[in-house]
Design a protein around this nucleic acid. Sequence first.
DNA 1: AAGTGGACCAACCGCCACTTT
DNA 2: TAAAGTGGCGGTTGGTCCACT
Length: 222
Amino acid sequence: MESLGVRKGGWTREEDTLLRKCVEKYGEEKWHLVPLRAGLNRCRKSCRLRWFNYLKPNIKRGKFASDEVDLMIRLHKLLGNRWSLIAGRLPGRTANDVKNYWHHHRFKKMVPIQEKWKDKAQTNSENTVIKPKPCKLFRGFTLKTASVDASKTQGSTSSPLATLLQPNQDIMWWESLLADHTNGDQELIACLLTEESASAVNTNGGGNHDFPFETGLWDIFN
DNA sequence: AAGTGGACCAACCGCCACTTT
DNA sequence: TAAAGTGGCGGTTGGTCCACT
C-alpha cells in the first residue's frame, strides 16, 4: 500500500530538515501523518526511524566508552536482546546503536573487554540469559509487601540491596527479584533504579511501597 | 595504486502488540 | 468481537570508510 512510489534509501539534507521541522511542530506522534505533514515521500516507519536514530536531539555519536560497553554487556546479560530497554539506560544511545555495536563486537571483543566478568560468564552461559516476557500491570497498582530478611536474598554474603536497605527491614517483592536477576550486581541495580527511587529506598523504611522505577522495567521480570 | 577485509553506520523488512473502528 | 490501522521492536542487509597488504 504505502510502499507504492515511496522513496527509499539514504536521507537527503532537505528531507532531514523537513522531518525535523515537522516533528518539532507536531511532536513525536501520529507517524502515519508525518509524511503528509512534512511533505515527504517516505513511509511512516522510515520517518520514525530517521527521527529516533539520527535527528532526535541529544543523540550521542562516536565510539562507545568503556563504561558504556561495560554497562551494555551487563544489561544484555540481564535483559537479553531488548535493545530498546538497554538503550534506555545508556543516555544518548539509540537501540540501533546498541544493536549494531553488539552484533559487531560480541564474538570478538566481549572476552577481552569483559575479562572481569569471565567467571560469571562461565557459570552463566549465554543460554541462561533471562528472557523477559512482557508483563502488564495497571498504573498505580499497589502491591502488598513481603516481609523478607534482606540478608537472606544473597545468602551470607552482603547483598547489594543490603546496602540500599536497612537490615531486616521489609523489602518489596521486586527488590528480591531484582537482586536475583542481577546476580548481585550493585552497579547494575543502581543503574536500573532511578535516582529518585534509589533515594526513596534509602530513606523510606518500607513506608511507601509504590514500585519505584520506571514502568518499562516491568518487562524485566517474568 | 589497487585489492581486501573489518568496523561502523544507516536503513529496510517482517512481525507482534496495542488501539481504534 | 473481529478486522483494520498504527506504533514499536529486533533481525538483517547493504553501503561507506579505513587500515593493511
